[in-house]
Design a protein around this nucleic acid. Structure first.
Lengths: 149, 149
DNA sequence: GCTTGACCTCAAGTGAACTTCAAGTGGCAG
DNA sequence: CTGCCACTTGAAGTTCACTTGAGGTCAAGC
């Protein structure tokens, strides 16, 4: 098929065309040429978009994701970075699980107010604990964002 | 002690004073008065801030969190909403766990490129699966954000 | 009495990730 | 050839959660 146009990529990836153009501008994807004004994309853009979506879910920023593609255009992901992200993800999962259990308890808790429930207060302690004030200027952006649209 | 000033609240909560002023403006917290120009806060602002932090971690927006406080100023959180959020959190956790396992595998995978690894490709499928294009205009903001700073 | 420093207000700026808009272009049907 | 319409562009706008900056006030210390 020698190249899909942006509309087809958009349809197949479930993303608006504007997002694809935005990604191209950011260097996350590349078109293989034009037909008239229209971008043509190789079909390998689809797994690449899947990888981008994956990276986003895993908490990488678009900029970080862009850095994961080597010069050859194929993913060249640093294995150390991957392991670090996995560890970070693991810590996040633990916190979220504690949170989920707390929420679930609060949803059925017989205490008249959530504040009187020991489980709820415990959850507050977990949530409030150890916030390292490492934000000197302009959002640190190392953590997870916008997981699970 | 009849009221801490903003600096003390900031210190105890580990938040900058600007954030506290911002939260007050948004109706998330309230000062109990002034000493001169300076805001005074009751000590109950601290658990309240913990609850706000918790809500943020659990994926609620500040606006949603503001809606969780009843007229009496005490948390009046809808139990149905809590359960729904717990379920959402649970789905997110499952995805993240799959992701973590995939990342962890990729970090040690012997395949020359990640793309040639079946586990990695499987992870891509998980990540790329079923994106409901429910984003008509201007950020939906219902998902998790900024978990685990 | 003057300086200092911590607070005050209000407006504007930041950053990520997009979306929206106005104006222009290209290919194809009629 | 003309119209149409889906596409193109670059610039500007949007949202969220804050932060920063300018200019002001006030209580305490020297």
């Amino acid at each position: 098929m020698l190249g899909m146009d942006i509309a087809e990529v958009a349809r197949r990836a479930g993303l608006p065309a504007s997002t694809l153009r935005f990604y191209e501008e950011k260097g996350l994807i590349a078109s293989i040429g034009r037909r008239g004004l229209r971008r043509l994309f190789d079909s390998d853009v689809l797994p690449r978009l899947a990888l981008i979506a994956l990276g986003q879910r895993a908490g990488f920023s678009l900029e970080e994701i862009a850095g994961m593609f080597g010069a050859d255009g194929r993913p060249a992901i640093d294995r150390v970075q991957l392991a670090a992200k996995a560890d970070e993800l693991d810590r996040t999962i633990r916190k979220l699980a504690a949170m989920r259990d707390g929420l679930r308890h609060a949803a059925v808790c017989p205490a008249p107010s959530h504040m009187e429930c020991p489980t709820f207060r415990k959850m507050l302690r977990i949530a409030g604990a150890h916030r390292p004030q490492t934000a000197p200027a302009g959002r640190k952006q190392s953590g997870l964002k916008r997981i699970g649209r």
